[in-house]
Design a protein around this nucleic acid. Sequence first.
DNA 1: TGATACAATGAAAACGCTTTGATATAATGT
DNA 2: ACATTATATCAAAGCGTTTTCATTGTATCA
Lengths: 334, 334
Amino acid sequence: MAATIFDVAKRAGVSIGTVSRVVNNRDRVHPDTRERVLKAIRELDYHANALARGLASQETATLGLVIPQVNDPFFFQVVRGVEEAASAANYALLIASQSRLTASEHRYLHLFRRGHVDAMVLASIEVHVHEVQEIMRQGIPIVLVQLDIGKNIPTFLADNYSGGRGIAEHLVLEHHYRRVAFITGTNHTPDSRERLRALRDVLEENNLDLPAHYIVQGDYLRDSGYQAMQQLLNLSERPEAVFAANDQMAIDAMMAIRERGLRIPEDIAVVGFDDIPMASYVSPPLTTVHQPVYELGWHAAHMALEIINSDQAMIAPRKMLLPTSPVIRRSCGC
Amino acid sequence: MAATIFDVAKRAGVSIGTVSRVVNNRDRVHPDTRERVLKAIRELDYHANALARGLASQETATLGLVIPQVNDPFFFQVVRGVEEAASAANYALLIASQSRLTASEHRYLHLFRRGHVDAMVLASIEVHVHEVQEIMRQGIPIVLVQLDIGKNIPTFLADNYSGGRGIAEHLVLEHHYRRVAFITGTNHTPDSRERLRALRDVLEENNLDLPAHYIVQGDYLRDSGYQAMQQLLNLSERPEAVFAANDQMAIDAMMAIRERGLRIPEDIAVVGFDDIPMASYVSPPLTTVHQPVYELGWHAAHMALEIINSDQAMIAPRKMLLPTSPVIRRSCGC
DNA sequence: TGATACAATGAAAACGCTTTGATATAATGT
DNA sequence: ACATTATATCAAAGCGTTTTCATTGTATCA
């Protein structure tokens, strides 16, 4: 059995209150006493029980993170960011992934609510505003990542619009492409929508058209980029450039293009979004937009901890856009 | 404030003991009473406090996972496997990553030992046998993943040797390459060592030589494959095939080869190990060995839970090799 | 009908800590 | 010298559960 605070107290010849004070550096303790206590702690290899501590102090020093149940390295970066921020503050990290099965019942929310965590970070999951608000009402701060449900909840998002604009302007202004197509993401999510809006705006500003048949539906996953590209290639007037809502699809689109015997970027230019590791390895290397994924996680965790330690008073800005930056490689024609 | 067991008890007109029994389905409770209690629970939206429960029952229903602090999608798969096994058993998952900074003091071990978790899974981290044994002695089962320190600790490993043999035999027996080089991993880790041993054995069995200058040191990371390949290309007698200890380096080696104006696989064949997502996207697609990463995580977690529920009695086999399988693509010459 | 078993519940003792209020001792001021 | 104030410590009351033991009420048996 591991040593308890009583064992330490007995060995040091003090009360458990004093041991607690030494351990937590609270109040003042006579130097001699402190030394005796520390010695006893060392000798017994004492470590305060986290559960008991949490129960007594109503603070668990634990952060909860919920991520979607997808096989996407993308989220690993979020996890890293959150983990690093948490562990820097000496917080533990409790992770739950939202599986397709339990999406409806949101088990993890219960899991976490049971006094397990001091705050939660929700990343890209499906969740209703009510649930979030309900949890916040119970005093558990929540920070959202890549998940915009408005309603005055602290949220960290990548600036999809300006990233989209950056890459769109590159295509239109630098390369002078006039026929640009877009491959959307799943159900046309807000992310995908923003990126499309950026493209549309840039084209409009330059008096260019974005016909409906140049917008093809994809689902962010591998195959869909290929399929979507097929459609575009079958058009009587092929686009000169294709903007895919993410790199995965862009890379797949490239395969479809090559299979037709066309060259990239000479015949058709391709750009993506995300800047996944693979993007720099395909040939030609994919021009894309870098997403600050790690940073999103880090900032979100950081803010969550901040809210905890600030009595959850008003933490000013409710929605933070983190900058995205175009990564110009070769697939755009550069 | 969230409702406690007292609130429920009062509302249902019973004692807290009865509520506890209903919640945990322990002992028998009169159907009518149970109904009343359940009703109260529903009305108050009661959820038992995990900390209090853990403290009283000495079980946290939480699994601890420690992963290295590297930016490697590889580990994300381990996490997924562990998470899925844990959540299937209604266990929460506590994650800590071993940062370079804290590697020496192993903070997470303390973090977890403080009664936080019922068992731990350690994946690919640097850790001393003593520490592990110390923790096990305190009654916390540990399962290792991709981390072989012997000593009767349950361990899940990918079968590096047989995977290495598979790919080596493919190179030697099918393609009849005679001059095969090897690029090692960091500090020549056990993994890398096993893969090399496999190659060496296969070559030997076929009366082929593996000269020292055909074994070049890498470090598993991006650049090192490139550097190592340079060395090999500068040799007076270039190898016909290169076996890199992981895909990352193999892909980098391919770049080095192409930069010299040589063709893959015509001039030099390249094979890797891991089967990372990128492997199928490079051109030519990389022949490699698939690692059951997700499965490693899943099995490890599963075993950890099994040990918990079996009174930690003898769980038979101490070291489990999970099969790896060659994935033949194009870079080998097929 | 009285003794006996069983079912259903309650009361209270852990679990290991934090934190408050009380107490004893030492230092300071008059 | 005595009252006052700081300082250092202790004792005990939570925190929200689980779990054991005791108690009551009801059905079963001789």
